[in-house]
Design a binder for these strands. Structure first.
Length: 964
RNA sequence: GCGCGGAUGGUGGAAUUGGUAUACACGAGAGACUUAAAAUCUCUUGGCCUCACGGCCGUGCGGGUUCAAUUCCCGCUCCGCGCACCA
C-alpha cells in the first residue's frame, strides 16, 4: 500500500496541470456557461502572503473549482497590483529601484500562490505597472477627462508627511494615513480629481440590490452619506450678503435662534464688526492651526465666537446673531447652519454654553399604551401642569397612589385662566396634598402632548403638559379641604421606582431630564410657536415651509452628500503618469490616445522630495515636451495616479489581457462579465466604490454590459495570529504558508484547515495544531481508498449498502449546498463525518469493490477536490481514471437514498426529554402517541396523572402535557 | 454618543420554519499495536448526583411568550466592528 506523501504528489500534479494547461480558459468557448471569479488583486510587498491572505484567495478558488467541476467554463485570473506606495516604500527600504524591488518580491508571491494550488489561468497574468496595462489606465483617464469627469482644482487636501504625498479621503483612517499610520495634515494644493460625486446617487440607489456582504453595503451607503433637506437663505442685517444654510429640518426654522459659520467660511471676514474682529480673527486662526487629529481627540466641548453680525430669519423676520464655531464643517453643505437649540443636541450644547435663547417649536405626541383613548368617551383638551415634588432631604418624589384604579402618578392639574404653570402647580399641590412650603427648582424645557383615557372622569384627555420640579422646604402641611384623599394616598417614591408610574406617557422624557438634566427632542411631532404653520405635522411642515421659501426665492429643496470627489494625484514616482501636458496657451491638454502610454521614465533618484511635485519633476528631458494642440513648448504633468486607479478596472483587462488595440473587447466582456464571485478582506469603501464608479462610466460609454462590476462580493474576515492579535509583519506573528507546506504537510492539509477553521466572516485565531488535524483527515481518505484499491470484489449486505449510499448521498447534498452558500467550514465537517462513517465499515473489513463503494468514494473525492485538489487528483488517477477530476466531475444526489424506513421520535413530558422511540416510517399518529405513552420511562413521569394534551409533530416528537 | 454584529464545553466552532443543545475538529484521559517511541486504531470527555438504570442543572445576565426557546419579545452587562460635531 502506498503511503500518503503530499510533498511528492503536489509537486507532480502542479507540473501536470501546468503542462496540460488544465485551468486555461478559451474565451471564445461558449459551449458551456461561464463562471468568472477571483479574489482582490494582491498588492506586492516584501513580505509575501500569510495564511490569512491564503484563506482569502482560497474562497474564490473553491467557488471557481466547484463550478468548473459542475460543468461551467470557469475562469480564475491572477495579476499583480504593482504600482503604488507599498512597492515604492519597500524599494526605498531595501535601497533598490521600484521595478527591481517589485520583480524580486514577485518571485516569492508567485511561488507561494503556485504551491498553494489555486486554479489560476497563469497564461493571462497581468501587472498594473506593465506599460501594456497602464497605457489603458491612461486611456481611461483621457476618457474621463474628455467627459468632464477628471479635473484639476486648488483645495486643501490631506497630506501625509511620512509618505510625502496627498491622500484621498478614503485613504485617511481616523486622521491617519492608511499606509503608514502617521497623522495627516491639510495642505492647499492644486490636484487632479475624478468626479465620483456625479455618480453618488446612482451608486447609492443600486447598493441595496447587490448580493454583497451587508456590512460593506452599509459602509458604502454611510460613506456616500446622502441627506435630503433644504437650503435657506438668511439676509445679513445691514449687508447685501446672503448667508445660505443647509438643513434637513426646515420644519424647525421658527426655532432658529442663531446661525453659525464654519471658521473657513468666506463670509466670516465680511460680516464681522470691528468690535469683534480681533476675537474672531484669533478664533479662526486657532481653528486653522488645529490638526484634524486634535479636533477629533478633543472632547465635544463647544467653542465659538460672536461676529457682531445678525441674520434675518426669512420666515419671521427675526434678527438672530451670527456666530463662528468649528463644530460647523466647511466642507459639508454650505459651511453654515441655522441653529435650533431646542431640537438639535449640538446647537443645544452651544446655546446653553453661550446663553442663547432656546425656543421649542415641535411638540412630541405621546399615546399612553395602557390607557389609550376610548372611541366612546368624550374628548377633552387641557393645558396641564405635572408637578414633581422632591423630598426636603432624601432622594424621594411625592406621588399619588389611586384607590379605584391601578394608577400611580404625579400631582397634576389643569392650568386655569390667568395662571402660569408654576402658579397652577403650587395651587394643585396645596389642594391635593396640603404641602405649602415649596421652592421651584426648574421647568422641563419641553411641552408635551399626550392622549389617554382618564378613568376617574370617564373622558379622553388630550393634554399639553408642562413639567415643573419643586422641592419641599419642610414637611409642613395645611388641612386639605377637598375630599380627594378618598381617591388616592400620597406616597414617597424613590427615583429608581419612578419608571413604574402610570399612566404617565411623558415618563421617558421626565426620567432622562432628572438623570441628565438635558432633554433635546429631535424626533417628529407637531409644530408649535411657528406662526401659520403651528399645528402641522413635522413631515408636512417640511414640505410646506420649503414651498413657502421657494415662492419667495429664499430657499429650495437640496440634497447633500458626504462623499467628495476622488483625489487621484500623487506626488510620488511609482505610479502611472497622468497623461496631461500643460501648455501656456492651451492649458491642460490630454496626451492623444495614439501617443499612449506616457512611459514612466527611468530616474536615478525616485525618492519623494516633499514638495508639491513628484520625483518626476527632475526628469527634465521627459518633462519638457511640446503641446499636442499648438506645438509650442510645454511641460508634462508630474503627478502620478493613485494606485487605486489601476485596480479600478483590472477585472475588465483580465478578459482581454493582451489586446493592444483597446483596453478590452466589449464582445468578450459581453459574454464573461460581470464578475460572478469576488471577495476580499479589505477595501470595503475605497476600491469597491471606485470600481463601481468606473464600471458605471464604462456602461454609459457602451463598453460593458452591466452597470455593476461584481455580482457577488463576499467580504471575509482575516485569520488572527495564534496570539489572537492581527497578523502583521511588524508584530512578527505572521504564518507563512510555505513554512507549513515545507514541513511536510503540503498544501492540501493547509487548504482544508483554512476552510475548516471558522465561517468566512469570523476572525478566528490560527491554531498551529489545526493543519495536523486536517492532515489526519486526508490521510484517512488516502488509507480508505488504498484499502478499496487493494480489495477484491465484494457483495455487500443490503443494510450495509444502504448505509453507504445514504451517507454518500447525504454528503453530496450537504457539501453542494454549503459551497453554494459559502459555508465552507461545515462542508468540510460533513466530509469528515462521511469518512468517519466509512472508516467504521473499513475497520469491520467491509470495504470491497462494489458499486456502492465505488460511488461513495468517487463522489467523496469529487466533493473534496475544490478543497484538496492534489490528493484528490492523485487518488482519482489511482482509481483508474485518465482524465482530470477537476473538470466536469461533480456528483449528484438522489433523495430516494436519504429516506429511511424507520424514524426516531422524541418523547417529551412537560417539555422535558424523557424517551426516544423508533417507529416505522408509515406509522400513524395514533400508533406513535400510543407507543410514546407506553414507554417505561415516560410512564414513570406520567404516573397516575392524566395527560391534558398530547402534541404530535410529524416525524419529530410527541409532547405530553400534564396538569399539576 | 449613534449604527450594526456577537456572547454556546478546556479551545475553534455545529444546530432547517421554535422541536434530541454541544455535530466536526483540537486538546486531555484510557486502552490496542510496538522491545520502545512516533505514526495508526478504538473508547471516554459540559457540570453535579448515582454502583447502575437514571436524575438535576446548563447556550452572557434578568424577565416574558409557548406544550416546547441557543432560536421569538422586553430590559441589562460585556466584547467586536463601522461611523464619529455630516446640520
Amino acid at each position: 500500500m502506498k503511503r500518503y506523501n503530499p510533498v511528492e504528489i503536489e509537486k507532480k500534479w502542479q507540473e501536470v496541470w501546468d503542462k496540460n494547461q488544465t485551468y486555461k480558459v478559451d474565451f471564445s468557448d461558449h459551449t458551456k456557461p461561464k463562471y468568472y471569479g477571483f479574489s482582490m488583486l494582491p498588492g506586492i510587498t516584501g513580505a509575501g502572503i500569510h495564511t490569512g491572505h491564503g484563506r482569502t484567495f482560497q474562497f474564490s478558488d473553491i467557488k471557481v473549482r466547484a463550478k468548473r467541476q459542475q460543468g461551467y467554463n470557469s475562469y480564475s485570473p491572477i495579476g499583480w497590483d504593482s504600482f503604488g506606495l507599498p512597492v515604492e516604500n519597500y524599494a526605498i527600504k531595501i535601497g533598490k529601484k521600484p521595478r527591481v524591488a517589485h520583480d524580486e518580491a514577485l518571485v516569492n508571491f508567485k511561488n507561494q500562490l503556485k504551491r498553494l494550488g489555486y486554479s489560476y489561468d497563469w497564461s493571462k497574468e497581468i501587472s498594473t505597472a506593465d506599460p501594456r496595462y497602464y497605457r489603458w489606465t491612461q486611456w481611461i483617464f483621457n476618457q474621463l477627462f474628455e467627459h468632464g469627469l477628471a479635473y484639476q482644482k486648488q483645495s486643501p487636501q490631506w497630506w501625509c508627511e511620512t509618505d510625502q504625498t496627498v491622500l484621498a479621503n478614503e485613504q485617511v483612517v481616523d486622521g491617519k494615513c492608511w499606509r503608514c499610520g502617521n497623522p495627516v495634515v491639510k495642505k492647499n494644493l492644486k490636484q487632479w480629481f475624478f468626479k465620483i460625486t456625479e455618480y453618488a446617487d446612482e451608486i447609492l440607489e443600486a447598493t441595496d440590490d447587490l448580493n454583497w456582504t451587508e456590512m460593506v453595503k452599509t459602509m458604502q451607503k454611510n460613506w456616500i452619506g446622502k441627506s435630503e433637506g433644504a437650503e435657506v437663505e438668511f439676509k445679513v442685517d445691514g449687508h447685501d450678503d446672503i448667508m445660505t444654510v443647509f438643513t434637513t429640518r426646515v420644519d424647525t426654522l421658527f426655532g432658529a435662534t442663531f446661525v453659525v459659520l464654519a471658521p473657513e467660511h468666506e463670509l466670516v471676514k465680511k460680516i464681522t464688526t470691528d468690535k469683534y474682529r480681533k476675537k474672531v480673527e484669533e478664533y479662526v486662526l486657532q481653528a486653522a492651526r488645529k490638526s484634524e487629529i486634535e479636533r477629533m481627540n478633543e472632547t465635544r466641548e463647544k467653542t465659538g465666537v460672536f461676529t457682531g453680525g445678525y441674520a434675518i430669519n426669512p420666515v419671521n423676520g427675526e434678527k438672530i446673531p451670527i456666530w463662528v464655531a468649528d463644530y460647523v464643517l466647511s466642507g459639508y453643505g454650505t459651511g453654515a447652519i441655522m441653529a435650533v437649540p431646542a431640537h438639535d443636541e449640538r446647537d443645544y450644547d452651544f446655546a446653553t454654553k453661550f446663553d442663547i435663547p432656546i425656543i421649542q417649536v415641535i411638540e412630541p405626541e405621546l399615546l399612553d399604551q395602557e390607557n389609550p383613548p376610548r372611541p366612546d368617551a368624550k374628548d377633552t383638551k387641557r393645558n396641564v401642569v405635572m408637578c414633581l415634588i422632591k423630598h426636603p432631604i432624601d432622594d424621594l418624589y411625592l406621588t399619588l397612589r389611586w384607590n379605584k384604579f391601578d394608577w400611580h402618578n404625579f400631582v397634576m392639574g389643569g392650568i386655569e385662566e390667568g395662571e402660569d404653570s408654576q402658579k397652577a402647580g403650587r395651587r394643585e399641590i396645596l389642594e391635593e396634598t396640603g404641602y405649602k412650603n415649596l421652592k421651584h427648582l426648574k421647568t422641563l424645557p419641553l411641552v408635551m402632548n399626550s392622549k389617554f383615557y382618564a378613568a376617574h372622569k370617564e373622558v379622553n384627555r388630550n393634554i399639553h403638559t408642562t413639567v415643573e420640579l419643586f422641592q419641599l422646604e419642610n414637611l409642613d402641611q395645611a388641612e386639605t379641604k377637598r375630599e380627594e384623599h378618598e381617591d388616592f394616598k400620597t406616597e414617597w417614591t424613590k427615583y429608581d421606582n419612578l419608571s413604574q408610574l402610570k399612566p404617565v406617557a411623558e415618563l421617558p422624557y421626565i426620567l432622562q431630564w432628572l438623570k441628565d438634566d438635558r432633554v433635546i427632542y429631535t424626533d417628529e411631532g407637531v409644530l408649535i410657536n411657528s406662526g401659520s404653520f403651528s399645528g402641522m405635522e413635522t413631515s408636512q411642515a417640511r414640505e410646506e415651509i420649503v414651498a413657502w421659501l421657494e415662492q419667495r426665492g429664499v430657499g429650495r429643496i437640496k440634497t447633500t452628500y458626504k462623499m467628495r470627489d476622488w483625489l487621484i494625484s500623487r506626488q510620488r514616482y511609482w505610479g502611472a503618469p497622468i497623461p496631461i501636458i500643460h501648455c501656456p496657451d492651451c492649458g491642460a491638454v490630454a496626451v492623444p490616445d495614439d501617443q499612449l502610454p506616457v512611459i514612466l521614465p527611468e530616474v536615478e533618484d525616485f525618492k519623494p522630495k516633499g514638495g508639491a511635485t513628484s520625483a518626476l519633476a527632475g526628469a527634465t528631458d521627459w518633462v519638457n515636451t511640446v503641446c499636442p494642440k499648438c506645438g509650442k513648448p510645454a511641460k508634462r504633468e508630474t503627478d502620478t495616479m493613485d494606485g487605486y486607479a489601476c485596480s479600478s478596472w483590472y477585472f475588465l483587462r483580465y478578459l482581454d489581457p493582451f489586446n493592444d488595440k483597446q483596453a478590452w473587447d466589449p464582445k468578450v466582456e459581453n459574454h464573461w462579465g460581470p464578475v460572478d464571485f469576488y471577495n476580499g478582506a479589505d477595501h470595503a469603501v475605497a476600491h469597491l466604490l471606485y470600481a463601481r464608479f468606473w464600471q458605471r462610466f464604462f456602461y454609459k460609454l457602451g463598453l460593458v454590459s452591466h452597470p455593476e462590476p461584481f455580482k457577488r462580493m463576499m467580504y471575509n474576515a482575516y485569520i488572527l495570529a495564534p496570539d489572537g492579535a492581527k497578523m502583521s509583519k511588524s508584530r512578527g506573528n505572521t504564518i507563512d504558508p510555505l513554512e507549513i507546506m515545507d514541513s511536510g504537510y503540503g498544501a492540501d492539509s493547509l487548504r482544508v484547515y483554512e476552510m475548516f477553521i471558522a465561517p468566512y466572516d469570523l476572525e478566528a485565531p490560527w491554531d498551529t495544531r489545526g493543519v495536523p488535524g486536517a492532515y489526519r483527515f486526508l490521510n484517512r481518505v488516502w488509507t480508505l481508498i488504498q484499502d478499496y484499491i487493494d480489495s477484491d470484489e465484494k457483495t455487500l449486505e443490503k443494510s450495509v449498502e444502504q448505509e453507504i449510499l445514504m451517507t454518500a448521498h447525504k454528503t453530496i447534498k450537504k457539501v453542494t449546498a454549503d459551497i453554494e452558500d459559502e459555508k465552507f467550514n461545515t462542508a468540510v465537517s460533513s466530509m469528515m463525518e462521511a469518512v468517519n462513517s466509512y472508516y467504521k465499515l473499513k475497520e469491520k473489513g467491509l470495504v470491497g469493490k462494489s458499486d456502492a463503494w465505488t460511488f461513495a468514494l468517487e463522489s467523496l473525492l469529487q466533493l473534496l477536490a475544490p478543497f484538496a485538489p492534489h490528493i484528490t487528483e492523485e487518488l482519482w488517477q489511482q482509481l483508474g481514471h485518465n482524465d482530470t477530476i477537476h473538470i466536469d466531475h461533480w456528483p449528484k444526489w438522489d433523495d430516494k437514498y436519504l429516506q429511511s424506513d424507520v424514524m426516531t421520535i422524541i418523547v417529551q413530558v412537560n417539555g422535558k426529554l424523557r424517551a426516544k422511540i423508533v417507529v416505522p416510517k408509515n406509522s400513524s399518529e395514533d400508533e406513535i402517541t400510543k407507543q410514546a405513552l407506553e414507554n417505561d420511562n415516560v410512564k414513570v413521569f406520567v404516573s397516575d396523572k392524566k395527560p391534558a394534551k398530547v402534541i404530535y409533530v410529524p416525524g419529530r416528537l410527541v409532547s405530553i402535557v400534564l396538569h399539576d
